[in-house]
Write a protein that binds this DNA or RNA. Structure first.
Lengths: 125, 125
DNA sequence: GCGCTGCTCAACCAAAAGGTTGACAACTGT
DNA sequence: ACAGTTGTCAACCTTTTGGTTGAGCAGCGC
């Protein structure tokens, strides 16, 4: 995995166990032990999962005696959403442009030489 | 990596090279060779990156003579966005509920026994 | 002070990811 | 028909990941 923020976030969420933990933390903070309970892996393994989530800034841990309550940091989600939204929109726009071209062709105005705006030539703005 | 859809998508996007390819495909379809050009890895490596993206249903490939043009399938983004949105909202709601509790405490009405809706007890609906 | 609880660190292991090179399949164009 | 282009598959290697167990640190309660 590369060590940039976005890669860490995606990689952290690529594991179903970790996604599950995020889901649990969304309803309320929980200690390491509480988080570990539902799974039949060692508590050390869970501790490491949490570490991965923490390094992706998806959760933060505070101190409460021996306990280390975990808290979900929802802001990082924005980073992902922004990335996703960007390319989704771009792809959609491109799709609509394609539709326009096809419609144009149908109307028979410029019969040839417009169907292949090959790769990049279409990057308006 | 686990083999469920969501895991595959997140894992696929955890690699900056693959994210980069998605970005390029958002502006327009491209062949394997075209996609490989900017990177100084073998074309086989790129081919495999594409395979990963394809298995995550993020791209599809068609045939054009020897070429295999890649096309971005933006729909899968919805899957991620939905997952993210769900837990972001849940976390936000929880945050607001906490605010309400704090305000309640401030007003001095129920001074004790409401500050710890411990883990899960707060799961309304 | 001492033992228990809660968690993390370290060493180790198996499996997976990501890269390489070499072979080769499929299609083009002459 | 044959050479060249484009892409994939297979074998191999190294690094990372996710799990294990054992040791140990820190804080609480008695």
């Amino acid at each position: 995995m590369a060590d940039d923020q976005l890669s860490r976030v995606f990689a952290a969420l690529a594991d179903p166990t970790r996604r599950d933990m995020v889901a649990r933390l969304a309803v309320g903070d929980a200690t390491v032990g509480e988080l570990a309970a539902p799974y039949d892996v060692s508590i050390q393994a869970v501790s490491r999962h949490i570490k991965v989530l923490a390094e992706a800034n998806l959760v933060s841990q505070t101190k409460d005696a021996q306990r280390r309550p975990c808290h979900l940091e929802a802001e990082v989600f924005d980073l992902m959403t922004k990335w996703i939204e960007r390319y989704r929109q771009q792809a959609e726009e491109r799709y609509q442009r394609l539709d326009a071209v096809l419609a144009d062709l149908q109307s028979g105005e410029h019969p040839i030489n417009r169907a292949h705006p090959q790769q990049g030539a279409a990057s308006c703005t």
